[in-house]
Amino acid sequence: MVDVINICNLSFSYGKRDVLKGINLSIDRGEFVGIAGPVGSGKSTLLLVMNGVIPNMIRGNFKGAVTTCGMDVKTSKVSEISRKVGIVLQDPNSQIFSLRVRDEVAFALENRKLPKDQIEKKVDKYLKLFGLHSMKDENPNNLSEGQKQKLAIASTLAMEPEVILFDEPSSSLDSSSAIKLYKILRALNRKGITVIVVEHDTELLVENVKRVLVLKDSTIKLDGPPEKILSSPKIEKYGLKVPCMFKSTARSSR
C-alpha cells in the first residue's frame, strides 16, 4: 500500500445529522492536499477522522473504514497514530496546554522519551523557525493570537511526523507570515512528508498545493489539481473565490 490515508465509504454524525456522508478518499505518500468548502461542511471533522480522534475520543455514529499509515483508526490508539501523524487544531487556544512556550514544543518529544539534549535542540530549532525563540520562557497565554497559532504549528512540526494535518493554519496570520508558513510546508513536502491542509484562501491553495478537495453538504464535491478545480467559476457556489491569476487569463482570452 502506498496510500497513507485510505477512507472507504465513511459516514459520520455527531448526533442525528450526517456531517460526513459516503466519503471515499485515498491520499498517497508525499501528496500536498488542500481541503476547502463552506463553513460547517465537515472539514475539521474529516481531519479528526484521519488521526483517529474520531471515533476513539469523540464518539458518534461512525460507519466505514479508515486506515492511516496502515493503522485502522477504529482499533489504534490516538497516541499510537500520533507517532506518524501530527495535527494542528483549528483553535490554538484549545490546543496549547503548557505554561511556558518551550514546554509546549517539548511536550510531544517528552512523550516519545527522547533524550533531553535532543529535545532542547529541536525546541530551539522549531521556535527559531517561527520567530518565537526570544519568547521561549513566556507564558503562551500572553502571546497574540497569531503568535499562538505559530506556536501550535511549531509544536506539531517538532514531532517530525510523516503526515501533517492543518486546520486553517493561516486564519490568524498576517499575509507575509502565511506565505512564509506555506514555504515551510512546501519544503517539508519536498522531503516526502504528506501535508493535508484545510484552507479557505484560494490564492494560497493555487500557489502551494498539488490537489484540492472541495467539501459541501457532507460530501466531497470536487477533487483534482488546483489549476483545474479553482479556475472554474462554479467554485463560487461553494463559497470560494476564483484566484486572481485565473480571472486575468479568463479576461484576456475573451
Binding site: 479528526l48 488521526n51 480522534v53 475520543m57 469523540i58 490508539k77 490516538v78 497516541s79 497514530i81 500520533s82 507517532r83 501523524v85 501530527g86 495535527i87 487544531l89 483553535d91 487556544n93 484549545s94 490546543q95 496549547i96 496546554f97 511536550f107 510531544a108 512523550n111 516519545r112 509544536s155 506539531t156 514531532m159
Partner: peptide, 16 residues
C-alpha cells in the same frame, strides 16, 4: 468543550 479539545490536543501529541 475546551477541556475535550485539550484532551484531544494532548493525545494527538503522543500522550497516553
Amino acid at each position: 468543550k475546551r477541556a475535550m479539545q485539550l484532551a484531544i490536543s494532548l493525545e494527538s501529541r503522543g500522550f497516553d
